[in-house]
Design a protein around this nucleic acid. Structure first.
Length: 587
RNA sequence: GGACCGGUAGUUCAGUUCUGGUUAGAACGCCGCCCUGUCACGGCGGAGGUCGCGGGUUCGAGCCCCGUCCGGUCCGCCA
């Protein structure tokens, strides 16, 4: 008899015979009758073992959880009063006639049922067991569905899926590379690609006008809950295209993914210029579900006698913001938040509690009140529209410190005070990024990557690189950056100029990516694209806290695989073949 | 590179500080017996612990101190 998947057993076929196979999820042995819950990839079915067949019954008494069985039996309706409403097959059961034990199982190291909490360490060590849990099955099914939607959507739109090398040459800039030693050329190494950036640009030069790829990327940087050393991008690039068109194409793809997986429809995504995002949220990837906004108050303190505010008020690279909470915050909590902003370089966290907004002389409470003038206080009350019960936090420092610390505090308060609708998906496009980022020392580095075109072109780039605006954009969702892209430089002169601003002269540029610079000089179409972090997107889609829950075999925070114990030591023979000598220990 | 939280039975945890003290507990799981309609079945009984590891303090350490490893969250980093 052929196997039938559990989901395909329907009411219509009562009294006929079926063969099902799967894992024993639960055994309920009542002495005189035994129930076995059998699960396959498609569903769950209750198998009944009745006592009339003595041999079968005896055999069944030895069956334990997680045994793999093949059961032949007659399908019947469950007796009245024994129907399980919470089960798809809850009105049915299979009365066993024959049971084959295909594989026994030791007791599992942890319970798979939804009621048992299990630590991630054990789950990762026995990932193959963890993957049997319905939640993991569902996450990876959705992931497969998303891949499928991406491919159909883009191929219907005449995109071409092209694979690019994973073993490439190391390039300067960007993240640390994972290196692959070359056996044939000792002393030489490949680098695993951090992204197919240059290859996809050369595909445009190669005449493919619409490219995409679902591609693994590698970056040797420390992990986070939404970052691990190998991750998957949906990479897209088009020629003869405008920023507007790329945003439209991306948006329709993302909307289709959410519609076909979760049946949710969205209005057009909100667009926010980078400078606006920083001004309102202190972040270029704000969680738009969070209603809190930063308010600039620098001008109020220009002539202040309070040094902590007065100094930044006079410094053009500094920023002073207020963050108003319409709630009272306890001293304990304020201390916690003070420590929290300290992580981002803030030297303290000034606050004012508004006990009675009608009495500015006695109704406010704060250690900084004695330093503030009446005019300053009433300006604050007016600008922040303070009312009784409010708490206001202040950040005053170099603008980077203020943006990082107060932006993060905004997110944390949103979480702590339950201001965020966990069910909602809030997308946004962040546009008009600066071409370069300036650190506190004033050094420039690419804010996207060094192949990004600027809005002002070569002239403006030469005149004022620090303020050049890029043709670059990010897609954000619920506080995560889930995609980012740009229009690319398609002229050799502009490309060389950007590299030189970054401190890479012509000689080094030729040495490190001369191949690409040469490609630019043989008729390069205007082009641009975007890359989405698929792991992150799917994590959010599946309402998971970590990308590890949407990756079948993820790495830990310290970049190891607990299942296979990678990375591992290598035999001397293998090292010799690669002409590699391993130093005894870290210096 | 740094900060913080955690590591006690197969699993999830309590016990750990203020206050070190005879035999380290619970629940689930596991094993045995009983049970003919359960579905997180039920009842009775039982087994199960290098308290992450190493060192120190002490008459005595799961508990205090130092170091270290592992897991997690974050800062730096991630063009």
């Amino acid at each position: 008899m052929e196997r039938t998947q559990i989901k395909n057993i329907s009411n219509k076929e009562i009294d006929s015979s079926f063969l099902i196979s799967g894992w024993v999820e639960k055994v309920r042995d009542h002495g005189g009758v035994i129930f076995l819950d059998i699960r396959d990839a498609s569903g769950l079915m209750q198998v009944v073992v009745e006592p009339d067949d003595k041999d079968l019954f005896k055999k069944s008494e030895s069956i334990r959880m997680s045994y793999v069985l093949e059961v032949t039996g007659i399908l019947r309706k469950r007796p009245k009063g024994t129907i399980n409403e919470s089960l798809a097959s809850g009105e049915l059961e299979l009365v066993s006639k024959e049971i084959d034990i295909l594989s026994k199982s030791k007791p599992l190291p942890f319970q798979l049922d939804e009621h048992a909490k299990v630590g991630e360490e054990v789950r990762l060590k026995y990932r193959y067991l963890d993957l049997r849990r319905p939640e993991m099955q569902s996450n990876l099914k959705i992931r497969s569905q998303v891949n499928h939607i991406v491919r159909s959507h883009l191929i219907e739109d005449e995109f071409i899926e092209i694979e690019t090398p994973m073993m490439a040459r190391a390039t300067p800039e960007g993240a640390r590379d994972f290196l692959v030693p070359s056996r044939l050329y000792n002393q030489k190494f490949y680098a695993l690609t951090q992204s197919p950036q240059l290859f996809k640009q050369m595909l445009m030069i190669g005449g493919f006008e619409k490219y995409f790829q679902i591609v693994r990327c590698f970056r040797d940087e420390d992990t986070r809950k939404d970052r691990q050393p190998e991750f998957t991008q949906l990479d897209i690039e088009l020629s003869f295209i405008s920023e507007e068109e790329i945003l439209k194409i991306s948006e329709s793809l993302i909307k289709r993914i959410f519609f076909e997986t979760l049946n949710i429809e969205f209005d057009d995504f909100q667009r926010i210029k980078y400078q606006e995002a920083i001004k309102d949220y202190g972040s270029d990837k704000p969680d738009l579900r969070n209603p809190l906004k930063l308010v600039d108050v620098k001008d109020i303190f220009e002539n202040s006698s309070f040094k902590v505010f007065a100094d930044p008020a006079k410094n053009e690279k500094a920023r002073i913001v207020a963050l108003k909470i319409e709630q009272e915050i306890s001293r304990n909590k304020i201390d916690e938040y003070t420590k929290f902003v300290g992580n981002f370089g803030a030297k303290g966290l000034a606050y004012i509690k508004v006990n009675d907004s009608t009495d500015l002389d006695n109704g406010l409470q704060s250690p900084i009140l004695k330093f503030l003038s009446k005019e300053e206080i009433s300006s604050l009350v007016e600008r922040l529209e303070l009312s009784s019960g409010d708490t206001v936090f202040f950040g005053a420092d170099h603008r980077n410190v203020v943006n990082d610390s107060m932006g993060s505090l905004r997110e944390k308060l949103g979480e702590d005070l339950n201001l965020i609708d966990k069910e909602a998906f809030k997308f946004g496009w962040i546009t008009d990024f600066p071409l370069f980022e300036e650190d506190i020392q004033g050094n420039l580095s690419p804010s996207h990557h060094p192949f990004t075109a600027s809005q002002g072109g070569l002239k403006e780039l030469k005149r004022d690189p620090a303020n050049a605006v890029a043709k670059a954009y990010d897609l954000i969702l619920n506080g995560s950056e889930i995609g980012g892209g740009s229009l690319r430089i398609n002229s050799l002169d502009e490309q060389l100029e950007v590299l030189s601003i970054l401190g890479i002269d012509k000689k080094e540029a030729d040495e490190k990516f001369g191949f690409f610079l040469e490609a630019l000089s043989y008729g390069c179409p205007p082009h641009g694209g975007i890359a989405f972090g698929l792991d992150r997107l799917i994590m959010l889609l599946c309402k998971q806290e970590s990308i590890r829950d949407v990756i079948a075999f993820p790495k830990t925070q310290s970049a190891t695989c607990l299942l296979s114990d990678a990375p591992s030591l290598i035999d001397q023979d293998q090292l010799d073949m690669l002409s590699i000598k391993v130093l005894e220990e870290d210096k």
